[in-house]
Simulated scan of single mutants.
Amino acid sequence: MASGTRSRGVRLLLTLAVLAMVGAGGWLWQSGAFTGKSGVAANAQPAGNRAIPVVAATAVRKDVPLRVDALGTVEPMVTVTIRTRVASRVEEVRFEDGAAVKEGDILFVLDPREIDAQILQAQATLSRDKTQLEKAQRDVERYVGLLARSAVSQVQVDDAKTTVDVQRATVQQNEANLQALQVQRSYYEIKAPVTGRMGVSGVRPGAVIRVDDTLATIRQIKPIYIAFGVPERYLTELRTNMARADVRFRLQGSDERVSGGRVAALDNTIDPQTGTLMVRAQFENADERLWPGTLGDVTVTLRMEPNMVTVPAEAVQSGQAGTFVFVIENNTAKVVPVGVSRTIDGEAVIISGLAGGETVVTQGQLALRNGARVDIKRQTGAPAAGS
């Protein structure tokens, strides 16, 4: 009985609450707080009449560099692996690990005693055979004189001449053997083939080495290469402007920049998988700021394009029909399709759609529609509207 009484009390309170809300709504309606026709707040301004705040900039005509940006790797111009051509014992290592060396500097000295002995033996053999050749030549002269007096036969003269020819050939063979030994003797002093910087020596004095053992590596770094890939669409520009292109390099992870580079070589093929062409730029690197294996950003300025239209890159928007910008005319935003060549230093280079001098929206585009009224709060590149 008590529970039924509580249920009827709750229903009564809910009914009274609904009646109170209906009454309040009727009072608001009658008092004019809402209009009976449009259903829009009487003191609210229609959305179409509101000016949307935006930031704008001016489209500018100026000379713009045709520039290619890429990721590059520093590479030595020449890398030579020093190998031995004879088997011997290392007597001296005449450089410090990582030292700079010049072409012709002696790097390693090997034990030459065996080859020196062979050279002495070859020299003695050559001297003996030369003496025998001289004797054979005197015999020919003597036989020729005797032949004139009919003291010897023509056969004996011919045999003497043959002996001279054989002995002369023997002398030539000995000279060749001696020359080969002298060439081998040069292998016992291993010299730097190029000017560059040494790596770490693979052997120390006292080590016994075999033919073709690796002893060290030398890399030429003055001048030095920077290798980088560029899209194939720049091939014609690169070939045309190769001699006057300016190349700069910024070391990765720092603001250190190196200028004065030039395009030195183009690869003879384009990578079909990436569509890029491998290019090598040469830097003098006199102060050795560039080190093999270093990564960085490469900037190649091919030429200057005169009188191009530019706008801040953030002004360009993308839609289903392509790229466009909002141009402000009489405080009204207008959609203008544009063609963009490239973006450089935060600016988009416009090749169609703008003539220069237009005011374009750079911030606030998300709230804009074609024909919307705008309120320019700030304008870069020109005084703000209304100032």
Rank of each mutant, 00 (worst) to 15 (best):
T274S: 15
G275F: 08
G275L: 11
T276L: 12
T276E: 07
R280E: 04
A281T: 02
Q282F: 06
F283N: 05
F283G: 07
F283D: 02
F283L: 10
F283P: 04
E284A: 15
E284H: 06
N285K: 06
N285C: 09
A286E: 03
D287H: 07
R289H: 09
P292Y: 10
P292A: 15
P292K: 15
G293I: 14
L295A: 15
D297Q: 12
V298P: 02
V298C: 02
T299G: 04
T299F: 00
V300C: 01
V300F: 02
V300R: 01
T301F: 00
L302D: 00
R303L: 09
M304C: 04
M304R: 12
E305N: 10
P312G: 10
A313R: 10
E314S: 14
E314R: 13
S318M: 07
S318Y: 05
G319C: 08
Q320N: 09
A321G: 08
G322K: 07
T323E: 03
F324S: 09
V327F: 00
I328M: 01
E329Q: 09
N330A: 13
N331P: 03
A333P: 11
V335S: 09
P337F: 11
G339K: 12
G339V: 08
G339H: 07
V340N: 07
V340L: 05
V340M: 05
V340H: 04
V340F: 01
